[in-house]
Computed example of a mutant assay.
Amino acid sequence: MNTLLNIIWLVLAGLWMAIGYFLAGIVCCILIITIPFGIAAFRIGAYALWPFGRSVVRDPGAGVASAIGNVIWLIVAGIWLALGHIVTGVLLCLTIIGIPLGLANFKLVPVSLLPLGARIVDTRMVAGNAYVAMPQTRR
């Protein structure tokens, strides 16, 4: 089911939102001091391209640098990307078939506003509100 929703998402909303994130990432990487923002934009752009089956968890130990970076991101790009998600989500919710896609857009709003200190993980690794790390196997 996730694959079907991701394909529909890609056509109706994902491609356009991912392009917005990738453009923001390119601009941030051109300005050398904002490369961490560019990396975050690319990571979220990949998530916006194929969101079903993945989830965002916050890293509680992200630190002050992430908080300061999130404020800068919010002013420079976060508001515009969040508005894109909100407008797209409202338009998708106008049809019954688009409601799950609209809800996925609304799910992306918090991470588009504050991307630093957020991790994108497989939904199977999230138990309730806690992130469950997969045990590493030794070979």
Score class of each variant (00 low, 15 high):
6 N>A: 08
109 V>N: 13
119 R>D: 11
99 I>P: 03
53 G>Q: 02
131 Y>G: 00
65 A>L: 14
72 I>S: 10
71 V>M: 10
73 W>D: 06
70 N>V: 02
125 M>P: 04
68 I>A: 15
69 G>H: 07
1 M>F: 07
43 R>P: 01
2 N>Y: 11
32 I>D: 04
105 N>P: 03
47 Y>E: 00
51 P>A: 12
36 P>S: 12
71 V>W: 11
65 A>M: 14
119 R>P: 03
73 W>Y: 05
67 A>N: 13
101 L>A: 02
125 M>L: 14
37 F>I: 09
59 D>R: 13
111 V>A: 04
2 N>H: 09
113 L>R: 04
78 G>S: 05
118 A>W: 11
125 M>S: 15
126 V>K: 04
18 A>S: 11
23 L>D: 10
30 I>C: 09
68 I>P: 04
9 W>V: 08
102 G>L: 01
17 M>K: 04
51 P>Q: 05
98 G>F: 06
91 L>Q: 04
70 N>L: 04
36 P>R: 07
64 V>G: 10
43 R>Y: 03
101 L>G: 01
60 P>T: 04
126 V>S: 08
123 T>N: 12
92 L>R: 02
30 I>E: 00
74 L>G: 12
90 V>M: 08
16 W>C: 07
104 A>F: 03
94 L>I: 08
23 L>Q: 10
107 K>N: 15
138 R>D: 05
114 L>Q: 08
137 T>H: 14
137 T>L: 15
130 A>G: 12
98 G>T: 05
25 G>R: 00
76 V>K: 09
101 L>M: 13
27 V>T: 08
24 A>F: 00
49 L>Y: 10
104 A>H: 02
3 T>C: 08
123 T>C: 06
56 V>P: 06
2 N>D: 12
113 L>Q: 09
4 L>I: 12
91 L>N: 02
113 L>A: 07
127 A>H: 14
96 I>C: 06
119 R>C: 11
21 Y>L: 00
74 L>M: 14
81 L>R: 01
88 T>A: 15
94 L>Y: 01
85 H>D: 07
116 L>P: 09
52 F>K: 01
137 T>N: 13
72 I>F: 14
25 G>H: 03
20 G>D: 05
87 V>L: 15
133 A>D: 14
55 S>D: 13
